[in-house]
Design a protein around this nucleic acid. Structure first.
Lengths: 135, 135
DNA sequence: TTTCACTTTAGAATAATTATAAACTAAGAT
DNA sequence: ATCTTAGTTTATAATTATTCTAAAGTGAAA
């Protein structure tokens, strides 16, 4: 994803393209493959890449802003840290608790044949399949 | 589940049946249906039922001991609090984020037709289907 | 009953996240 | 180009969930 597209992406979702947001967006979206991260890992990256330290609060703000705008999705993983995913399409996950590693599963690689009806006046928003791995 | 069974349940899993553990176990397991709770809700119950205040640390200890013994399972729900489930059989969940309510789905009510192979030398430990609800 | 490893407890410590409020800045108006 | 201001960033404090600590308490085997 090119710089111009990053600016477009931000502006089109009502986010002013500040220096910090552009930097974070470049890091997250200027790559071939989607990936998973935590606020901690993002922060570590920007701390080490000390040329441009971004405040931790800004990283939280930005990640949440991106999530609200639909540019990131949140993945639930047992444990305390919150994982984010730059893959915002509907998909599933393997989780390896040994390495704390998340692996995407294409939505077409899982077919659900039977599913229960949603309860009382509710509707199904989405279905997430989470496959825990062991050795 | 009767008192005698509770004592048996504790002892058979190597847990000394202390006053606190028995009280918590009675509250969790002496009921018809399985249910979901958080450490916070459990603690609230024992605080109000002031006859027998149990230390918060004890509630954490006990819940984890029960989980390790296989008497409770942990459910992953987006957000910060950890949910536990007295239903330790293999099953799935509806989650209503409006009310933060979890609803069990019997394992037989979901049939998965196609599932990907586990990656590199890993095996599938279990498959959890999480259905998010909306209005 | 004595003993001791296992437990409970209050409170401190840690960790992830959110709130605060002062300083800063993108971008439309002048 | 400069001014203005609402939206942002920042350091720091606050909050929340959970774990740690170490002292006091207690089942249960001998």
């Amino acid at each position: 994803m090119k710089k111009i597209d990053i600016l477009k992406k931000l502006r089109s979702s009502g986010l002013r393209p500040t220096k910090q947001r552009v930097e974070i967006a470049k890091f997250l979206f200027e790559r071939e493959k989607t990936f998973h991260f935590t606020v901690e890992s993002l922060n570590k990256f920007f701390t080490k890449k000390s040329a441009s330290k971004i405040a931790l609060a800004t990283i939280y703000n930005t990640v949440h802003a991106f999530k609200t705008a639909g540019h990131l999705s949140e993945v639930e993983v047992r444990g305390n840290k919150t994982y984010f995913d730059t893959n915002v399409s509907n998909h599933h996950h393997f989780y390896d608790s040994d390495t704390s590693e998340l692996i995407d599963i294409d939505v077409n690689d899982i077919i659900i044949q039977k599913i229960p009806k949603a309860p009382n006046g509710k509707k199904i928003k989405n279905v997430e399949v989470f496959i825990n791995l062991k050795n």
